[in-house]
Design a binder for these strands. Sequence first.
DNA 1: TATATAATTGTAGCATGCTACATATTTAGT
DNA 2: ACTAAATATGTAGCATGCTACAATTATATA
Lengths: 143, 143
Amino acid sequence: MQQHDDIGFIIKLINECIEKKANQTLKQFDLTLSQARILFYLHDHNEATTSQKDLEDFFEVTHPTIIGILNRLEGKCFIRSETNSKDKRVKNIFLTDKGINLFCSMEHFRKTIEQKMIQDLTNDQIRELHTSLKTVYKNIQEI
Amino acid sequence: MQQHDDIGFIIKLINECIEKKANQTLKQFDLTLSQARILFYLHDHNEATTSQKDLEDFFEVTHPTIIGILNRLEGKCFIRSETNSKDKRVKNIFLTDKGINLFCSMEHFRKTIEQKMIQDLTNDQIRELHTSLKTVYKNIQEI
DNA sequence: TATATAATTGTAGCATGCTACATATTTAGT
DNA sequence: ACTAAATATGTAGCATGCTACAATTATATA
């Protein structure tokens, strides 16, 4: 069994390829893929207030990782943050108008990339792929 | 469509989960997953000489990335390198005895993780998963 | 042969992930 | 009410990925 046939290795190659292509596309917006994913989350959850902890839980990364990404987004004025008045430990994160405007332009690219990834697959194959990936994810989490 | 259902997002979650689990396991050997993959490659190709360029091509990463990993491996004496006498631009990479010994201990963990990932899947499902992932990889490369 | 191009490796600096440690605030227990 | 534990965020330093620029050697071409 060569490494190139390991599921884990193929998944790494796919992930890094997605990142490279997405980052090339997002460069025109002065964004990276990780940063764009945060903006998508904030847009999808704009009815609720979002804390750093919410983002850590959703993206399953540690808090220093989230802080770094948020600092860069705030530096570029795509988001703003303010301390929660009811619990001063918490910082709430909001999209700025600049961030909201960007979302509309990016939504198109997001759908395009996701669709190109699964072209040549039948609907059944896509369903199967989803199911198997979720099984793999569950398995790896249990180790 | 929520982000959690995007194939690209699930693949990112799987990849980072694999890295975390593998790095925990490999800590006892003073290795990371990326470093271990290099050692596996060198062991699998021990009949041929390996240059930095060969590793860049196989792992599909840029040369600064490979140089960083190799420097850390050489600092820990798992590999050694020497300039190719026939082409002085080229540096050839070799496993040391320390690196060879480690390989045997790690091979067990590699197979265990890869098997746990695909448990609960039938052979047909595993074949389908492989095929679909390779299609996705091809698609994303063409963007 | 001399020079231009290509190929291989090296360095600097950045983004995103991590662990470990620190700080501030809230909650729980006595 | 006071202290201990839990929770949320912040900082420092590292590994792995990247781009951009540089240096060396080999190859190709005028």
